[in-house]
Amino acid sequence: MPRLVHDRITWLTYAQLGVWGFFLYGFGPVVPLLRDEQGTTAAVAGLHSTAIAVGSLIGGFLFAPLAGRLGRGATSWLGLAGVAAGVAALCALRPLPATLTAVVVIAGFGMLLLGGVNATLSGHHGPAAPAAISEANAACAGMGLLAPLVVGLAVGAGAGWRPALAAEVGLIALVAVAAAAFRVRLPRGGRIDAEPGHRPGPLPRAYWVAWLLMAVTGSIEVCLSLWAALVLRTSAGMSAGAASAALAAIVGGMFLGRLVGGRIALRVPPIPLLLVALTISLAGFAVFWSASAPAPAVAGLLVLGIGNSLHYPLAVSIALAAAGEQADRAAGYSSYSMAVGFGIAPVALGWVADGVGAHAAFLLLPGFIAAAVALVVLLRRERFAPLPV
């Protein structure tokens, strides 16, 4: 059985992904508030998700060459610095074009951070990488657990969402100071496909199946993050502040699922574990969607979070393992899958919600879960088939 060693490099990457989680999960409940503030429709407000997709494409395109030139560690720090600058701009600006631009910047630099963390943990931990990546995402969800609560409390107190989201800048500075104080240096990493004259071959089929799986499961997560609060307001009778805070149930479930899942991933192969996780997600959705009162709706979100918790860590671990020596290139391309999920699904859901209401529109999610199950079944075949050299 692989053994996961928690050294200083591991803890630092966990902290880096944790502060990214504060923004990622804090921004979801902010979108409906931006919609109210800017006086837009649900579909127009969903363009902020498209902005995340655009930024993800840019960041994914830039990650591999930057990691080859600067190293994975420096690229991660560059990503965090850019996220801090983008969040400061988002909190300072109000017009729709300005907030969309700020979100593009945040997402682009965020993908540099995410690629650096995933590639670092994959190279640093080898066979134990699925457990390490799961725990890193537990840290992401753990910090993200605070964000909806902070946003909800700030809105309920009349301060608005901006002071809550601005805390991201301070958290990034705190991680940088701690890294300097403890003299933790992230490994540069290596990319054979970055060597002069080397022409990388095609990534194997198993990688691309895992890539599609990341796009589909990412669609589930982002739709919940951006629009679940609206369902809680319209179908479960919750106030705007309470609905925003209630999204912490999703992140709380993800935190618990990833924390425990990291241990389970050392013993259980990724593919059967993914099927179990998708089944739990479907059960949680059924409870959430059928609820007409706050308590069962929030309970359903908690179960959904537990199910969703392992989708991304397991899929990206399989993808990077399948990529072999092209891990940096594969990590960059994985951002494109997030762009597909963030750019298409929430806008489609918002467009449907404008016509039939958010509650009915959420029936898109079981379709995403069914597609994910089909991809996992295909991945079972492709993962263990002979791969191209």
Rank of each mutant, 00 (worst) to 15 (best):
Y25F: 07
S317F: 05
R329K: 03
G55C: 04
I306T: 05
V103L: 11
A98Y: 03
L171C: 13
A159G: 04
A295N: 03
T75C: 07
A131S: 15
D328L: 00
L232M: 12
V377D: 06
L232D: 05
I106K: 00
V117K: 12
G110P: 09
V356N: 12
R35V: 04
R329G: 03
G357C: 09
W351I: 05
V155I: 00
V44H: 03
L212N: 11
G73P: 13
V117H: 08
L62S: 10
A84K: 05
S49Y: 09
Y333S: 10
A179M: 15
L212I: 05
L310N: 00
A43I: 04
A157S: 14
A139N: 12
W227Y: 02
L70I: 15
P313F: 08
G115L: 11
L304Y: 01
L213M: 11
F27R: 13
G46V: 01
S49L: 11
L113T: 15
A360S: 14
G160M: 01
S76W: 00
V44D: 01
L213Y: 07
D36K: 06
P296M: 08
L275Y: 11
A159Q: 07
A249N: 02
S235M: 02
A51V: 07
S292H: 11
L121Y: 11
P32Y: 07
G341M: 12
N118F: 07
M1K: 13
A295I: 07
D193M: 10
H125L: 11
A129M: 09
V268P: 10
S337V: 01
P97L: 00
V376L: 03
A164Y: 01
I172D: 02
A176Y: 06
R35D: 00
Q326T: 12
T41H: 04
V276H: 04
R329L: 06
S335V: 06
L247V: 02
L47D: 07
G79S: 10
P29A: 12
A89L: 14
A345V: 07
G60R: 00
G241E: 13
A240M: 08
G284D: 01
R188G: 15
C223A: 06
R383I: 01
L203F: 14
A210C: 08
G237P: 01
A385P: 03
L378W: 13
L17H: 15
W289T: 00
L278W: 01
A64Y: 15
A88C: 04
F182I: 08
N308Y: 09
P127V: 05
P294Y: 06
S290R: 02
E168P: 13
A51Y: 05
A370L: 15
